[in-house]
Amino acid sequence: MKIIVCAKRVGHAYHSSTVDLSTGHIDPGKMVFMLNPYDEIAVEEAIRIKEHISDCEIILITLGIFEAEETLRYAFAMGGRRINRMIRINYESFDPWETALALSNVIKKIGFDIILCGEKAIDDNCSQVGTFVAELLNIPQVSGIVKLDIVPQGKKTLVERYLGKGDREEMECCLPALFTVGKGLNDPRYPSLPNRILAEKMKIEEIDWIDLEFGSEEKALTKVTKFFSPKPKTRKMFTPDSSLSALERLNLMMSGSSSKKEGSTVLEGSANQLADHLVKFLVQNKFLSKEDK
């Protein structure tokens, strides 16, 4: 089995002064750089798969400038000898499409069974590259998985992901496939020192952007034009209409324009009767009939 993990070096902004208000640029000096936490989960998952399936090859790929090698080495150190290759594509792009083109180009040549990437990168917050790569390679994908089981025979996987409200969806997906991993899939390990020493010595294969074979049409689809400090969006709130009379406006304000429920009477009686009322209410409003089994 061949597992490819895409890992990114990201800048993490932890201070409100990250954007220079006067120039509209972000200041890298005011950020810290690290392996994207979601990609870290992907690396960990690959290592865990290899711990169970011995016949397995792990290849780490990153796209970025020279500094990205440090990040790649950190990812390598997590797995040590379990990781077989490291590849860096020497290019940096803000456009997910360009990134995905480069990655898929390289991945296609290597071959794969499973591709793992983070659900999103904490810097641009795009969550697109994974899906782009899947589409470019024409393979199925599931995003934001929190559980990954490989069915030994039949090249199939069972995955789970969150649907909101704490619900999870279990899906079956055939291989080869791409999964973007979400928080909660696993708890990434901390590299041991021997593995770090090993990582320092490992060779990283470097591929130059120009060496990738692209069509002439394939270029960036978006462009970042400006950085600025966040401002909350004004949310709607109840406002009395200016055309109402002063008294009506005042009354609306003083009542808090609240959704007071009118007309319900206060029920009294024995505890049993009252309990019946409540249960009836629940039944009428279908809170009891719609139990899932």
């Binding site: 690290m34 708890d187 390990r189 901390y190 590299p191 041991s192 020192l193 021997p194």
Partner: peptide, 16 residues
């Protein structure tokens, strides 16, 4: 810590 990378889970965040 160094060889086994085993320590209380809270420490990972501290190290990182």
């Amino acid at each position: 810590v160094l060889t086994e990378s085993k320590f209380p889970s809270e420490y990972k965040q501290v190290f990182k």
